[in-house]
Every structure is written in structure tokens, then in C-alpha cells.
Design a binder for these strands. Sequence first.
RNA 1: GGAGGGAUCGCAUAGUGGUUUAGUGCGGCCGCCUGCUAAGCGGUUAGAGGGGGAAACCUCUCUCAUGGGUUCGAAUCCCAUUCCCUCCGCCA
Length: 419
Amino acid sequence: MLSIQFIRENPELVRESLSKRGEATGLDEILRLDGERRRLLQEVENLRARKKQVSKEIGSMKEKPAELLAEMRDTGERIKSLDHEIGRNEEELNNLLLRIPNLVHPSVPVGSGEDENIVVRSWGEIREFDFQALPHWDIGVNKGIIDFERGVKISGSRFYVLKGLGAKLQRALIAFMLDLHIQQHGYAETYLPFMVKEESMLGSGNLPKFADNLYHDAEDDLWLVPTAEVPLTNLHRDEILEPGTLPLYYVAYTACFRRESMSAGKDTRGIKRGHQFDKVELYKFVDPDTSDGELERMVGNAEEVCQKLGLPYRVLQLCSGDLGFAATKTYDIEVWAAGCGEWLEVSSCSNCGDFQARRANIRYRPQVGERPRFVHTLNGSGTALPRVFIAILENYQQSDGSIVIPEVLRPYMGIDALR
RNA sequence: GGAGGGAUCGCAUAGUGGUUUAGUGCGGCCGCCUGCUAAGCGGUUAGAGGGGGAAACCUCUCUCAUGGGUUCGAAUCCCAUUCCCUCCGCCA
């Protein structure tokens, strides 16, 4: 979230950033509540200071004067009622603050939606086919590696079953990506909870605003993670990192769970958009001065996955209107899928600045003895499995119906083609 | 799930109603001393939010797991919650 001090001191800047995103504000109410809060705080703190003073004096008296006791009783009542008022005020203020998206990074192009995203570079050749390239839903069924019907039978629409070498290909991809980031890019491997507390969802910015897209277990009040970004953000929640510990790089594989209620009827064919999918996630906690460069490097790490797999891709810079809630700047990577003839988003890499750090209270101490500052956090897919899976099936299909396995996956698959 | 025990300043501990602005030890930091190191000696040691100030800084309030309550006054008494430990039960 944004700091209330910052909003108080730069209301116009915040308003401008919100309008770049096409967000209605609510800033006036925030400023009003903040002013009221500070007025109440001053009043209650003065009363408290007096009460503290007087109580101390009473402690050292032999005779306790009745009228002083009575006055302090009244003061106590007054403090209590002011406290309640402040409590209500802060709750309201906090609710509003938690729904304000991050500031837009100055380098982000202004635009109203995904049509105005900018292609910043592309890589690889789009393959020409001398036969009709099939979409993955046909390939998957032909090869007996994706079972849509049984997925639906077990769990309903937007679920599928991977079988045999299909399941193995997915596992190979996960292992390949993890190994690459751990061994080549210096990320620390983690295995995380797939279910988190409400507090953790607040920390990453998924709650309170986006409850619609999350699965929630009412019984134990736990939420299924929509991305490993959630538990990764919370890894260092409420911590002050000692000098010298930054930057921290983490990589994790998790399943991700999304209700996709917003995209009902969209992408229903195939495995492009399911309620459950696998993803390898990159995450960084860094010094604020370095986060711009760290974002570029993170995108590079994700691109390398595509390059090593030989998948043609393009990198988009999201315009202000398409930026996610917590992000200040984002690059998407889209790979080409020859069968369905689409660019598929396989990665989204964002610099969240101190937005999540503030929510999750993640700080670092620049030098021994200095005051703590909020870290910057970055997250990026490295990458999302189903879409890479799709791209491999569709781009590596052969006229005889077989699928060539990309070189880098062969050690994990033990075969060079799906026949 | 049942029964007990616990949660205090980075760590370990003391503290059962009023100079507690939470003591002590360890660790950390800064000095001093010292061929070097160690030891020793002295000092220091958190976070958040208000108010004032150009700033350095000054000042107030809160924080002894969390939230309530009792009281003029709570780390200390009461209630609830969370987490941890031990035992029992169940279980990949």
C-alpha cells in the first residue's frame, strides 16, 4: 500500500498516478480521515500524558484524594471513547488504503488497456509448417497425454488430467526450470505452503480487493494460493533484514489456484486457463536503489527459459492501464503457439517497489545502527507451465504426429520425441 | 481432537499491582588499554505513530504474543484468541 504520509504530502501526484491506471480515486475521503485521525490522536495523547503523570503522583501519596481519583476515572472514560473513535477511523482509513493500487513507475507508458502494451523485443523464428499444425487439445488427445473428459468428471470444467508422458513432460519442465534458476541464476530453492492465512493474502495485495478470484476454505479460514508470489512475499513478513542480507533471490514451484470467475467463457478450450495450474516463480527482495535493474535481470532469467526451450517469444511492457494492482512496472513474456495461432502469456515480471513490503512490513537495515527501510520486492513467473507445455506440443509437432522433445528436456524425459 | 505447561528488549533470563524511563548475562556496536590477538575496563544497544523544526534534533503516545476487561495506576490480576512445548488419540 501507499504510505499515508506520502499521500498526505503528494496528493496530486497520487491522483495523477491513479488516473493513469484509469482508477477512480476516493483520495478525498482518505485525506479527510487522516486529518481527523491526527486531531483525535493529539487529543487522546494529551489526556493520556496527564493521566500517566497524575497516576504516578497518586502512587507516592499516603492519602489518595477522592476528587483526583474521580477526575482520573472521568479522564479514563474520555480516553476510552476517543480510542474507540480512533479505532473506527483507522479501520475505515485502512480499508480504503488497502484498495489503492501501487504508483505507476515514471518509465511506464500511459495507456488504457492491453491493446496499448508495447512490444519491447522479440526472439526466435516462428516456424513455417508444411502441414496443418494442430492445436494442443487435439495433439493431447491424439497422443493420449491430456484427458479432458475425466478431468471434468473428477472436478468439473477447467480441470484436466495429464497422463503418461504428458504428466512426465510437465514434471520435466518443472525440474528443468528450477535447476536453471537455482544453478545458473542464483535463486534459492524453496518449497512453500499452498494454503495461506488471510494476513498473507493482504501482505501480497491479493486481499481485500481480489477475493473473487481466490479459493477460500471457510472451515479453517485458509486461502489457496493463486501464485507462489503470495507465500514468497510473506517469507520475510514482519522482519528487519540485517545489513548485507540483500538481495535475496528465491525460486519456488507451486500449484496455483484461481477461480477465474472474471473470465467465464474465455479460453475454455484446452489447458490454457484452468482453475489449477503449475508455475515456477521467481522472487526478489532487494535494496530500493537496485530494483529497476533487478527487474530487467529477472525478465532476462525468464526469457532464458524460453530460449533454452527454443520457443519464439516477445516481451511486452505493460501500459499503465494494464498494470497489476501491486506492480509499479511490469513486463510480460508471450510465447508463440503455432497450433492455436496465439501469443500465450507465460510470464509476468513486476517490480512492486515498496508496495508489498509496506503491507507485509518487510524492512532491511542499510547499515548497522541505521533506521530500517522498506525493501523492494519483485516477482516473475519463470515460467507458467501449461502454456509452455502448449507451446512445446504445438511448435515441436511433426508431420507424422510425433512431438520432438527440446534438447534441454531430454535428460529429464529420457526420450527425444513423443511418438 | 483431549489434558497440561508456556510466550518478557537480537538470544538467555529476572520481574505477581505504584521511581520499571523493564534489571542482569551473552551477543552486537563505539571507545580505552594493548607487540598482535584474547582478556580486561568504560559506554551504548528496539520499533511504530503524533506534534514542533529548514535541518541536526527536541517532545508526546503506544508496544512485555494478540484483543478485550478490572484499577487513579497492569509485564504483573481476570476473560478470549493465536502460537510453541509435553503427553494421549488419529494419521500420509
